[in-house]
Design a binder for these strands. Structure first.
Lengths: 202, 202, 202, 202
DNA sequence: CATGAATGAGCCTTCATTCAT
DNA sequence: TATGAATGAAGGCTCATTCAT
């Protein structure tokens, strides 16, 4: 599932369709995007889409899987390269989240806007790849707790969602406005800072 | 705007329609809900909806306005009654947010799921009532900064969004699962705690 | 029939509705005119129309009857007052047709545009008042034939229609463009002239 | 314009739709004909119509263009083959008008009934092909005037409309009743006769 | 594999008509 | 009589999906 029709691991055309869909969904949202628009964006015929995806829903889900997997991979890889303790790791995580997603503005729009909507109303899809994202964050927190850097009176499952929510909402704001590169740094610092030390003066 | 058709004093039917729409949207999402379903949910004829709202989009927007206004009013009112400094106020804010929205499960679904989608794709609607919500949060932060309780190296506009994002995401999780009353308290404490003092041990 | 609901020979309101309908139909045509537009044009409530007319079709038909009867009466009355032979009478007829209808521009639009459409598709209505109009013309021709002024190798039924057709089409042209009073005289002379003596030089 | 959607070389389906529309409009009139009826009359799916025409209005206009162009072509072609002076030409014109249109009874209904209605209320359409028809008639008259056969105190623009009006109205009568072939000849003779020489005895 | 014309189910919206006041 | 809010049947149009080429 989430890989309808034939699937040939990855053809050039399948990729073109996913890319086209991302552009189209980012511009007008899932429900306002016609399959024919995706097709023309991808430079293929309408019918071709159905050779690679079972239907429009499946295309959406596949796109999620694809992009979330890419994000997760990049995130984990960066995280491994990160020296230092929890503070550095969280800071790096926030920064990567922003950079990765903003690297492709359409991806930002897509993630911030479609994730929730779709998660709930597209079939019974439970979005495993987003689950994996949360797991990464959760593991990070649990590591911090294990190493004694973090308070252990916090439920890592809830915390990971809260952090994602904060990141995502700030990202949405950045997406809608026009974010300059330095803004990313400012927001990264600000967010990782309050996540680590809170709003209060110490 | 956000008030199509006539409206008369007979606001009773208008209310029934808004209530029906909330139930329907919560159940299936805006785009999967038929106008006729809203009508039957509201106990009116299809055509009646168009006496009170210009079209389906207008109904969605009106519903936002209506509910956000209700939330904002309740929130401000509670905030005034709150004794104590910033810590107490933020705690109260988080608690109220959760309670108000969970008081009506449909409202929770609606807010967490439709807010973003709609904000971007329904006409040029810029969602002033959500803006007002953020203003309340922002003012709260600025008060804290003025009173010296809060760090003033933080941009209140960004912080308010981060906080909303965190609340909203955790709320989504609560909505999807089955939250017991005590869970609300746990999460309230947890969230206001890390927002105030961060994840790190002090 | 053609006088639905109650009918009280003629109430002030019935008249207002017919007048409003004429204005509305002239402006947008029967099928593009909403009953509510007629009502507001007439200054009555929507429902009031149904106290005087069975339905929208009946209103159209009644309007025809009313206006054609008015035209017929005026026409016959003028014709009686006309001195001279057939030539004068036909000339007078043409002139009256133009003047009467152009006296009220809306009436002109209504007659030229709705007459045919409606005659055929509104119920089985066979438009007796238009039949009466043709009868007047036909009688005129037959008188001329009887008095020996007119050729009697012509079928008066067909001729009456041909004459009406010519008048009506020229009227349509006048209606669409902006006709000055002197244009009416010019066209009257031209039309009665060729009807009497033909296009050829003698 | 007047050519919505795509159109491809597959003009066969486009033709089927136009034919179906003609039948349907003739039977019930434009406003009483459902798009789905046209589709079934044409033997295509409802949606197919929108591949060839922008909407129902565009279909009507396109049908006009198509049929009037056909009439105009046939008319001009016949006119060229006609020997003799103005009398013969006008006679031929009248005859052709009747024959062409009656050749297809539906076309007769369509032309006589929908032409005016539509001309005025369907968008801003100014019906160029009907203008071309009038031009043919007008040129015919002007030729007659140039050759000295016709009186030159007549405005050819007005005359062409009057003639069309007469023809059209008589045609309407023929359409509604049952015309036998010999009737066409009788009416042709009668009409061209009075147009040429008038109603009066000479 | 690829195409894109064709399909037809489905939905939003309109508006003639009704009826409680 | 008069009103106008309410009704709900009806229809134009869209668009995801199919399938013959």
């Amino acid at each position: 599932m989430a890989q309808g029709g034939k699937q040939r691991g990855n053809s050039e055309k399948r990729r073109r369709i996913l890319d086209g869909a991302l552009r189209a969904f980012a511009k007008k949202g899932f429900y306002n995007t016609k399959v024919s628009e995706i097709a023309s964006e991808a430079g293929v015929a309408d019918g071709t889409i159905y050779l690679y995806f079972k239907n429009k829903d499946d295309l959406l889900i596949s796109l999620f899987e694809d992009r979330m997997e890419w994000i997760n991979n990049r995130l984990e890889q960066e995280l491994e390269n990160l020296e230092g303790g929890f503070e550095e790791k969280l800071h790096g995580f926030v920064r990567m989240h922003f950079l990765l997603v903003l690297e492709n503005r359409d991806l930002a729009e897509f993630i911030t806007v479609e994730l929730r909507q779709s998660a709930k109303f597209v079939k019974e899809y439970d979005n495993p790849k987003f689950g994996a994202y949360l797991k990464i964050l959760q593991s990070l927190i649990e590591e911090g707790q294990a190493s004694g850097e973090l308070r252990d009176d916090l439920d890592s499952r809830i915390m990971s969602r809260a952090i994602f929510g904060a990141l995502d909402e700030v990202l949405l704001q950045m997406t809608l406005g026009k974010t300059k590169p330095e803004d990313v740094e400012v927001r990264t610092r600000m967010l990782s800072d309050i996540l680590l030390h809170g709003l209060c003066k110490r």
